[in-house]
Computed example of a mutant assay.
Amino acid sequence: MRQENEIMIINTLATAIRSRGMTQAQFAERMGVDDPTVSRLCKQRSFTFARLQQICQALGTNEITEFIRVIEVK
């Protein structure tokens, strides 16, 4: 039986937030959302393009690879 490849998304948003010296509350304020929303984002496995743009803007970067990695699992 052949197994299909899987893609795993690793969310390191919490690390990206901390590396900029921000708390989740400060990041939430920059995004214009509440703290529970940021907590959910830090655990999320998929994002809309609009949300990715919003996160990048709040982090002050254009590089989504700073907080999202996609790994192909064979």
Rank of each mutant, 00 (worst) to 15 (best):
T48P: 01
R45A: 13
M1N: 07
D34K: 00
I17S: 01
F49P: 00
A14F: 02
N5M: 12
A14L: 09
R40N: 11
I10C: 08
A58P: 09
A25K: 15
L13R: 09
M8G: 08
L41V: 04
M22F: 10
L59F: 06
V33K: 00
R69H: 12
E6Y: 15
N62P: 10
K43F: 07
K43M: 08
A28V: 07
A14G: 09
Q57G: 08
M31I: 14
A58R: 05
F49A: 04
Q54L: 07
T61F: 07
K43V: 11
P36W: 09
Q3D: 12
E4C: 11
N62E: 13
G60W: 04
E63Y: 02
T65G: 12
Q57L: 13
V73R: 08
R69F: 00
G32W: 01
R51S: 10
T61L: 04
Q26C: 09
I71G: 01
T15N: 12
V38A: 03
R20M: 07
K43P: 00
C56R: 13
T48D: 03
I71V: 15
Q54H: 03
R69A: 14
V70D: 03
D34F: 05
S46Q: 13
G60T: 09
E66V: 01
F49D: 02
D34I: 07
C56M: 15
M22C: 05
N62G: 15
T65A: 15
Q53M: 12
V38Y: 01
G32E: 00
T48V: 02
A14Q: 13
E66Q: 12
G60D: 10
R40D: 11
C56K: 11
I9E: 13
F27A: 13
R2F: 15
K43S: 13
E6L: 14
V73F: 07
L52D: 01
I64H: 06
Q54G: 03
D34M: 06
E72G: 06
T65P: 01
N5K: 15
D35T: 08
G60H: 04
I64R: 03
E6R: 13
L41C: 06
T37F: 12
E29I: 12
I71E: 13
Q24M: 14
R20H: 07
I17K: 00
Q57W: 06
D34T: 09
L41W: 03
C42D: 00
F67P: 00
F67H: 00
Q54M: 08
F47E: 04
S19R: 14
R18I: 03
E72M: 04
Q57Y: 09
A25R: 15
